[in-house]
Design a protein around this nucleic acid. Structure first.
Lengths: 202, 202, 202, 202
DNA sequence: ATCTAACCGAGACGGTACGTCACGTCTTACA
DNA sequence: TGTAAGACGTGACGTACCGTCTCGGTTAGAT
């Protein structure tokens, strides 16, 4: 689970008050917003800790105090958006459940700031194992995919175990975006969904 | 097609001699080897143009003269290896053709230096459009995949158009490696191959 | 007037505190000392900004932050020494006043580190107008010469205006050192002083 | 004595022909002209061996084959001009002989390309002993000054030995130009000449 | 109403890689 | 052999960002 600011413990108790000046919520938000904006404006590579601090109007030390790397900031900035963008309403039709998800995923990966962030992080993960771990624990794709699979499973008796089924479902879409930069057309997504469903129903 | 040193045109003519001292083949090879070694030793992120030059025992300017970025060097260093590692011998059995390829791809992506390089480049491509373009023109995965699909197509009448079929085939494997860092087991690969073949044969 | 670190304004007020970490006096001194040492050890030409920083155990940016060129550092490092070395005590005898000054000047130019620095700067000034300006504003020779001239003027009614008188006094000594690298002997200095005094007394 | 291209031995014989391709006079002249031009166009500091070669349309190695440093080229390029510009016609009047020389010297140092070169070399000599030696052997100022002194000596019985007299004569002018960048006015030159003559006649 | 401790901004610090430039040497083909 | 061309290894250039540190100042709860 990702760090959440002033996270409330799940009992009825609140966090014990610490001495000293409390963390500035304004500074935190300024940093997250700065990261969001800069990602689309200058791109991941040109985004620096120094630049983020200046853009956020925040001291450099304040950034380092709460996050070690720009990947951490980016993850915190996008994970909630990602989750909501990848959640599709339940449909009666299994094929429609899959298609809706594939469309949402494609839009997420190609059009959304959160998706752009996810791709940047996934890219960084190929260079830096820590980022990969960060990304795995946040589970951005796995969770929403699982929900969709659970909806479909009742009518897909031949569906393989979750891990493979998930990667069969979103793998082609993700690979397509990562390698070419753009997604599949809606009609190809439909073909893909039908393919899988046919195979899983066997 | 990637730059090839002293590339001989395919006719009987050779390249016209340019004035001045010719490029040093030794320096070129030293750089490519240095990049190969450093990628596995220190990783992509810690690899710098300066470090490459020093490791290769080569002037910094010499590196910049022939390559703009470490991505270019890496691509030139790995593209041939990649192609050969992803080429599987033709089999009589369609399912075996697919499985062999999926196994080779998984080993390439998880075990081979060239595959490590490819992943690093694909990661960098998420940060830098120029790297993506470089990677697209080199076509590392597309070409070998196409060969396998062509072998299978005669017995797979429902196989969709090439682009989608290719991404259905290698997408799950690639996605799995990129997101988790490790590949699918052989038995899951077999299941995946069977799934696809079943769907494509209907 | 040359920049002086943390220069206190001459009233009772101090400089208003600037935000951020204050400049490190230790780093400033380390740079000035490094420059002093390196000038005599390796010479002006072989002295580089990089070398100065390393010798001083200081970051390169820290040097550039406070000085643009090695000439500036050198000037700041030597101007105070120069002034004190060129200041001779007042004598009753006019001829002795001149001679003492000429001797001090010769020793300064040929034997003192500060004088070595001055010659290097004067040399650089022939290549770079900015250095000349720097040197003019610092007024290394003009001021001490003026003091001596003022002492002598009462008994030298024919002494020309200051600029010419000064250059008549120190010009031969300076020219001798610059062109040959070594100074005039004491007896020639005496002859020179007598010559001038005779002409100025007319 | 400075190197002179294809210097003819003083007997009636010509130099024995050496084997191989003879040195290109065109290349030599191109280099000297390039140096002349670049000195006034970009200044001494910005003049590089590489730039000289390119400007002259000459190979880099060709420059290095015949000269080690830009100082050597500059000296060869300007020494003849310097000598002729500093030679004044003999006058009957001693004071006029001095004044003419001082004026010529001032114009040389402030207005002539050859004088600019001389100042640059003298500047460089403060950083590099080899350049000083080069400059001393070429004797740019000493020789013409000596000629003038010899003309004046008959009517100046108190003139000190040559070295001091020369430096008394030209030192103030040289010092003035080196320190301020501009020369003394004609009327000050006149005053200076009179001063010296008065002292030397006593 | 202090006191104290952790926060905040600003910015200098020692490092290090960046991409460029010139150095002086070398290796070609040609004259 | 001399020449123009140009690649070579070397190393300084001035800039940018790294992550740390040191200031003055702020903001709370505890005394």
């Amino acid at each position: 689970m990702v760090y959440r600011y002033n996270e409330i413990v799940q009992t009825s108790e609140v966090a014990p008050p610490t001495p000293g000046r409390p963390r500035s919520e304004a500074a935190r938000r300024a940093v997250l917003h700065a990261v969001d904006d800069m990602l689309v404006e200058v791109g991941y590579a040109a985004m620096t800790m120094k630049g983020i601090a200046e853009r956020a109007g925040v001291g450099r030390q304040t950034v380092y105090r709460w996050w070690s790397t720009k990947a951490q900031i980016l993850l915190e900035a996008c994970v909630d958006d990602a989750r909501s963008e990848l959640t599709t309403p339940r449909r009666g039709d299994a094929q429609r459940n899959l298609l809706d998800y594939l469309v949402a995923l494609t839009e997420f990966l190609t059009g959304s700031p959160a998706g752009l962030a996810y791709r940047a992080l996934l890219g960084e993960a190929q260079h830096d194992p820590e980022v990969r771990e960060l990304l795995c624990t946040a589970d951005v794709l796995a969770e929403p995919t699982q929900i969709v699979l659970d909806r479909v499973r009742p009518v897909a008796p031949a569906m393989p175990e979750d891990r493979l089924a998930a990667t069969q479902l979103y793998g082609p879409i993700l690979a397509q975006v990562l390698t070419t930069g753009s997604g599949l057309t809606r009609s190809l997504l439909k073909t893909h969904a039908n393919s899988l469903l046919y195979a899983w129903q066997s």
